[in-house]
């Protein structure tokens, strides 16, 4: 059985009888885990529309249209409306970056952060809506790049000290940025940072490393061997979110179906 097959077998088993997927097998269903499960394959079985339509959570369903638009546009409509209506709260007086640039937040009434912004941008790009909001997101993400080339959760520095990037924020930021010529320096520095996942691996790092390289026309193969090894019979550590991300990366490279493009 291939790693992709093992991943999907685990995901099938861990789906809850009452609908949706948990973060960890046996736990309660969660919106983000259920949205990510939809990235595991193109078939209808991976998209639990019934559960998702009754369990909306703002930040994690920002990603829903990106992975589900082709299968269930009606399900995506409320999430798209929420994405377009959402306004992060600006923060004045911070130095080293522009915290007034609008993006998307984890929780309404707070500042913009990289991952929810990337989720929303991926969805808007997929559906082709609100190009001005996409450009705002591009500006915000480009502004927040850390000195090491990757992205921290939101800010590149705090109180004058530079922060180190994180592999997951960097991966999502790269997936969200359109592959445009004027963004190439930003993207290339980010892709170079993603290669740290090869020496300090994790499932998130390897899966997002492969997906971000694919998104920008680069070879994802260095990430795939280590990624496949991490998928056992119980998925990755019985974690649905990690296993679904691994499946998304393996599907994109082995089957040519990419949930995020």
């Amino acid at each position: 059985m291939s790693a992709l097959q093992r991943a999907r077998a685990f995901l099938r088993r861990s789906r809850l009888p009452t609908g949706g997927w948990p973060y960890v097998a046996g736990g309660p269903a969660q919106p983000e885990a259920t949205v990510l499960a939809a990235a595991a394959g193109p078939e209808a079985e991976w998209l639990d529309s019934a559960w998702l339509s009754g369990n909306e959570q703002a930040w994690s369903t920002f990603l829903l249209p990106a992975v589900a638009w082709g299968r269930d546009p009606a399900l995506c409509a409320p999430a798209l409306d929420r994405i377009e209506a959402f306004r992060s709260s600006p923060v004045e007086g911070l130095v080293g970056f522009d915290a007034t640039l609008p993006g998307w937040s984890w929780v309404s009434g707070t500042a913009a952060w990289i991952q929810p912004t990337a989720f929303a941008m991926l969805s808007l790009r997929r559906v082709g809506r609100s190009p001005e909001r996409i450009e705002q997101g591009v500006a915000m993400i480009a502004d927040r790049q850390c000195a090491d080339g990757g992205w921290n959760y939101g800010n590149p520095e705090v109180l004058g000290a530079q922060l180190a990037a994180h592999i997951d924020s960097t991966g999502w930021a790269l997936l969200a940025l359109p592959p445009r010529e004027e963004l190439r320096p930003v993207i290339e520095r980010g892709l170079a940072f993603m290669t740290t996942a090869l020496t300090m691996p994790s499932t998130m790092g390897l899966a997002l490393g492969a997906l971000s390289h694919l998104a920008h026309g680069q070879d994802p193969s260095p990430f795939l061997g280590g990624l496949a090894e991490r998928v056992g019979d119980e998925g990755v550590r019985s974690r649905v979110d990690l296993t679904a991300l691994a499946a998304a990366a393996l599907s994109a490279t082995e089957e040519g179906w990419n949930a995020f493009l």
Binding site: N152, Y153, I167, M204
Partner: peptide, 11 residues
Amino acid sequence: HTRDAEFLLER
């Protein structure tokens, strides 16, 4: 600061 708990645990 780290969503990637697997990374944190292993490293």
